[in-house]
């Protein structure tokens, strides 16, 4: 399935929502934030898609107020791969967890929470993964400033 076919297939299932391709990266299908877990459950279980392998999820920080969450997944049955993107509000970033659908989303979401400060309601154990537990801030945000950071001279 191509990204356009994924968008059309999702549009048939959820006809009240609009599914389009990301204008920055046409490999990505944009998902509406409200129905993220339902979409992924459908993509995993539907016979035409069967996305049974969760590749990874990651995040892109786009200041001043956009934060993109990217999911990549694969079907070992149909041998097709797809990327999905959810656009979040940078100041109040939260998206429902998909770790109950794919177990390995657990650590991916912990990493994104740790480094980007995205909250995942429904996650069983949302702790920091890489930084120390008492760390303050989310280092991969573009406006992150550590007090003792030595800035490279130009």
């Amino acid at each position: 399935m191509t990204p356009g076919e994924f968008a059309a297939h999702l549009g048939e299932q959820y006809s009240e929502h609009k599914f389009s391709l990301d204008e920055l990266n046409e490999e990505c299908v944009l998902l509406p934030l409200e129905i993220v877990p339902q979409c992924f459950e459908f993509l995993r279980d539907d016979d035409a898609t069967q996305m049974d392998y969760f590749d990874f999820s990651t995040c892109v920080d786009r200041p001043p107020d956009r934060l993109d969450l990217v999911y990549s997944m694969y079907s070992t049955v149909h041998k097709h791969r797809a990327q999905f993107k959810v656009i979040l509000d940078r100041h109040n970033a939260a998206v429902p967890s998909v770790s109950h659908l794919w177990e390995n989303a657990n650590w991916n979401e912990r990493e994104i929470y740790d480094l980007y400060g995205v909250f995942f309601p429904g996650h069983k154990d949302l702790r920091r993964l890489m930084m120390p537990d008492d760390w303050e801030g989310h280092p991969l945000r573009k406006d992150y400033a550590h007090p003792n950071l030595v800035v490279r001279p130009d």
């Binding site: 280092p139 550590h146 950071l149 030595v150 800035v151």
Partner: peptide
């Protein structure tokens, strides 16, 4: 990692 690093002990 001396420059621009927040996580490395210098």
């Amino acid at each position: 990692f001396y420059h621009d690093s927040y996580s490395v002990l210098k």
